[in-house]
Amino acid sequence: MLIGELAERTGTSERLLRYYERVGLLHPDRRANGYRTYDEDAVDTVGRIRALLAAGLPTRVIRGILPCTAEDATVTACPGVLDALHAQLRTLDARSAEIAAHRAALVRTIAEARNA
């Protein structure tokens, strides 16, 4: 199938599909005229990519664990996958703590402004 059909079937823009290709998540074949062609598996692959993105994983992490995912985006324990997921969880925890600190500071600032 061509990129337009894949975009329609997955609800993903052609631009985003080209981005997935550029970062190594999709691997279409090329026709002699340069058009991208995708096999039926690409529909499931895009679904898994979207599910992993929704879980907060960046494309650089998805690239490493995508081969270890089932059709429903369940991740299996391939070598290095758990380490990558734990590293991403630590990153999210650090960002969450930073946001919580900023929130607390803003709450204090608002309280101080009310009392002034």
Results as ranks from 00 to 15, higher is better:
H27F: 04
C68V: 00
T69K: 10
A113M: 06
I49G: 07
Y19G: 03
E71Q: 10
G34C: 13
A113D: 06
R36K: 14
L52K: 01
L82S: 13
G24V: 00
R48W: 04
L82I: 14
D29P: 00
A51V: 01
M1N: 02
R30N: 11
D44A: 14
R30G: 07
A101T: 03
E98P: 01
R22A: 14
T37W: 06
E98S: 15
A94H: 14
H27C: 05
D72N: 15
L26F: 02
G56T: 02
T74K: 10
A97P: 00
V46H: 11
E40L: 04
E14L: 03
R60P: 00
N33H: 07
N33V: 05
T59Q: 01
I110L: 15
R9A: 13
A101D: 14
L89F: 03
A32K: 10
A116N: 12
P58H: 03
L92R: 09
V23S: 09
V43R: 09
T45R: 09
D83L: 04
I3C: 11
L85T: 05
T12S: 12
R90C: 02
A7D: 06
L82N: 11
G4W: 05
E71P: 02
D72P: 05
E5M: 10
V43E: 08
H27K: 13
G64A: 05
R31P: 02
Y19E: 04
R31S: 10
L16D: 08
E8V: 03
N115C: 12
Y20M: 03
R48L: 06
A73E: 07
Y19R: 07
A32N: 11
A42R: 09
C68S: 15
A111G: 15
D72M: 06
N33Y: 01
D41L: 07
L52N: 02
A70D: 14
V61W: 04
A101K: 09
E71W: 03
I49L: 10
T12P: 07
A101C: 05
I62Q: 12
S13F: 09
L85P: 00
T91I: 06
V81F: 04
L52F: 01
L26S: 08
R15G: 12
R48G: 05
D44H: 10
R114Q: 11
R30Q: 15
R31C: 08
H102F: 11
Y20S: 03
E98G: 15
D72I: 03
R18K: 08
A105L: 13
Y19N: 02
D41H: 10
A111R: 15
L57Q: 01
R60Y: 10
R95E: 15
C68M: 09
V23N: 05
Y20F: 08
A116P: 01
R22F: 00
I62P: 04
L25N: 08
G80P: 03
E71Y: 07
